[in-house]
Design a protein around this nucleic acid. Structure first.
Lengths: 212, 212
DNA sequence: TAGATTGTTAATCGATTAACAATC
DNA sequence: TAGATTGTTAATCGATTAACAATC
């Protein structure tokens, strides 16, 4: 439908960072900023910043720079923070509960609608006014409720099964905390948070430093 | 000290993924694998896999491929999983507690030595046999104990302060969950887990799909 | 030995940076 | 108008892929 050429993943990964820094500028009542000033703050080159923004259209004004509020709103629209997303969490262990209680959650339009687990001790417990249900109920739940994003916080060995369940029920976005690479159709988006890989990266970087 | 040319971040970020897949192969009793087979499994091209490994030395054998166990151990050594790391967590909220209870933690050599928070309700509570202490005690604690990695799970507005405290006490690795970019000296390594940015990336990708 | 697959060099591709004309 | 800064094209840099000689 849309015709704009594909945006590279490198650019996409920078967008949330722009969004965060612009929010901070807004809070500090800054109302205009040049690519140079933004560069000093955020650490990307001014040239890259202008290139990135121009993937989506000309948000600036020659001789002036960018209007912070306008740019913030535009990037928000590009990211999709102007919409609401119904979500469910599968796996109410440490990570699942942390995510459920994460307050910034709602700020980007995430509405938590359900939490599921297999552990009988957890089923029935309430988190944020939501009663944890048996994983066996997910299918029926998804039949009745419209859910946009499924969050996987189960162990590695069951993650793919949950992903399949999501896919067969039409969920198009998966936020995956399990240490596996999920296999899903092309039209389903997966964003991974691989904590173990993150830890290993840190450890590598530390040892590399020490070797210098 | 070490003279090997700098490894690009792109390669570094792939190492933990290799490590994870090799662990899986080991568990399945696979004892040799070619770059082509690994490519089918992991999704990188065979050429890239060979290039990556050759940043660190020739781990393979022409006509044979790679010995899984040997390669796994080599990559482990490169990453630094053969060493132990004393860690502390600052911020015992949802994320901090989840990380403290995260069982894979120890598997890569992380030894949790302390947990700190400002909340009087949390101070004194035990998590994994460790009593949560007042944040004010961090400085003294770091004076007495050798800590390699500091984990920041506090809100954005105090994260930099904690990082400064870490740096002044000689901590060289920071795992940061706060939604800020920390300012630290060059010889201190920071690995960020920015959940909010991850969510926004997912939302962008979903909307991009829908537009197609 | 013949076949297979690495290690490594060369070619290609894509992303970042530099430069500058357009224009507010 | 003059100065500033964007939008955009061109140049550079780096990363990925292709190719193939080396060799197990």
């Amino acid at each position: 439908m849309d015709k704009k050429r594909d945006i590279s993943m490198a650019v996409i990964k920078r967008l949330p960072k722009y969004y965060r820094h612009l929010a901070e500028l807004l809070r500090n009542d800054v109302d205009r900023i040049s690519s140079k000033e933004l560069s000093d703050k955020i650490g990307f080159t001014a040239s890259q910043i202008r290139q990135d923004f121009n993937c989506f259209g000309g948000f600036g004004q020659q001789g002036y720079g960018y209007n912070v509020k306008e740019l913030y709103n535009e990037i928000g629209k590009i990211l999709g923070t102007d919409k609401e997303y119904n979500t469910i969490i599968v796996g109410a262990g440490n990570i699942g509960q942390a995510i459920a209680n994460y307050s910034r959650f709602e700020k980007v339009g995430f509405n938590l609608k359900g939490i599921f687990d297999t552990n009988p001790k957890l089923i029935g417990v309430r988190i944020k006014d939501i009663e944890i249900e048996d994983v066996d109920n997910i299918d029926a739940f998804l039949g009745k409720n419209s859910v946009d994003i499924g969050i996987i916080c189960v162990p590695a060995n069951t993650a793919q099964k949950i992903a399949d369940l999501f896919v067969s029920n039409g969920i198009k976005g998966i936020w995956n905390f399990a240490p596996v690479d999920l296999d899903v159709p092309e039209d389903v988006s997966v964003e991974n948070v691989h904590l173990l890989e993150s830890m290993l990266t840190l450890v590598y970087l530390m040892n590399e430093q020490k070797a210098k």
